[in-house]
Amino acid sequence: MATTGSYYYGGQQGSGNSSWNSSAMKNLKKISPVVQNHLKRVYLSLSCALASLAVGVYLHLLWNIGGILTAVGTIGAIVWLLSVPPTPYNEGKRVKLLMAAAALKGATLGPLVDVVIEIDPSILVSAFVGTALAFACFSASAILARRREFLFLGGILGSSVSILLWLQLASGLFGGSMAVHTFEIYFGLLVFLGYIIFDTQMIIERADLGDHDYVKHSLDLFTDFVAVFVRLLVILTKNAESRSEKEKRKRRA
């Protein structure tokens, strides 16, 4: 009986997967060739921005340039990019500003990366690979899902970001406990994973309505990627420190 039941449910599950794959492919066909081409440009620009981010981190490791100035520079480059009209004439300038903002962001993250390397360099690789896999999975789910299925997340995610901002403000003014800091990290990770889905579907809908500003859309996804990467990096670093402390206690005992 157990074998029969297992086979029955296994057959049901297989049928469900086949149906899901079929519907997913139909949803993908609903995306016009123009929008598909736009998505290719968005993800290509995102890849270049991530490469610029890595260059910025490397420059900090060489010359220790990351800090408040690069953080302000990142904001300035982003504001400048958003202020430039998305016309064909300005396309090259806006791409350069995106790359500059990414490199400055990398330099700003340099001090954190430096600390992580001193603890365990493999954490950096694990955090990046984990972020890339999560980003790919959540982006794919948004692309293959029904049109506008996840747009309702906008209000929820906006409210969640407000909660994070208030928590950070309260921690800065009154001091925060370790529990609050841990909650901010994990809750923020969930929020920005949600933003990957939401922003991907928003990009598709905007492109379908004629908004083909791939530089701005790449910036949106770049922001999501970095936010997830930083939080995952902090989580893995804390876990490594906890394991190290436990090992030291065992050796002392």
Rank of each mutant, 00 (worst) to 15 (best):
T3R: 13
G5H: 13
S6P: 02
Y8H: 13
G10S: 10
G11D: 11
G11N: 13
Q13Y: 13
G14M: 15
S15I: 08
N21K: 11
S23V: 13
M25R: 10
L28Q: 12
L28W: 13
K30Y: 08
S32T: 15
P33G: 01
P33M: 07
V35P: 04
R41A: 14
R41Y: 12
L46E: 00
L46W: 02
S47T: 14
A49G: 04
A51T: 08
A54D: 05
G56C: 08
V57F: 03
Y58E: 09
H60V: 02
I65G: 05
G67S: 01
I68M: 14
A71D: 06
G73S: 07
I75Q: 07
A77I: 00
I78S: 04
L81E: 00
L82V: 09
L82E: 10
S83H: 14
P85E: 07
P85A: 10
N90C: 06
R94D: 07
A101M: 04
A101V: 04
A103L: 12
K105L: 08
G106L: 04
G106W: 02
A107Y: 05
L109I: 09
G110H: 03
L112Y: 09
V113Q: 04
D114R: 10
E118W: 09
D120G: 00
P121Q: 08
I123E: 02
I123D: 05
L124P: 00
S126V: 09
S126G: 01
F128A: 11
G130M: 09
G130V: 02
F138K: 01
A140Q: 07
S141L: 15
A142R: 01
A145N: 08
R146L: 11
R148C: 11
L153R: 05
S159E: 12
I163N: 03
L164P: 03
L165C: 13
Q168H: 14
S171Y: 05
S171N: 09
G172S: 07
L173G: 03
L173R: 08
G176S: 11
M178G: 02
M178F: 11
A179S: 14
A179Y: 07
G188K: 00
L190A: 11
V191L: 06
G194V: 06
G194M: 05
I196G: 00
F198R: 09
D199H: 11
Q201N: 06
Q201M: 06
R206S: 09
L209Q: 11
H212Y: 10
D213E: 03
K216T: 14
L219C: 04
D220E: 14
V226H: 00
L232Q: 00
T237H: 01
K238I: 10
N239W: 13
A240N: 12
R243W: 09
R243E: 14
S244K: 07
E245I: 11
K248L: 13
R251E: 15
R251I: 15
R252N: 15
R252A: 13
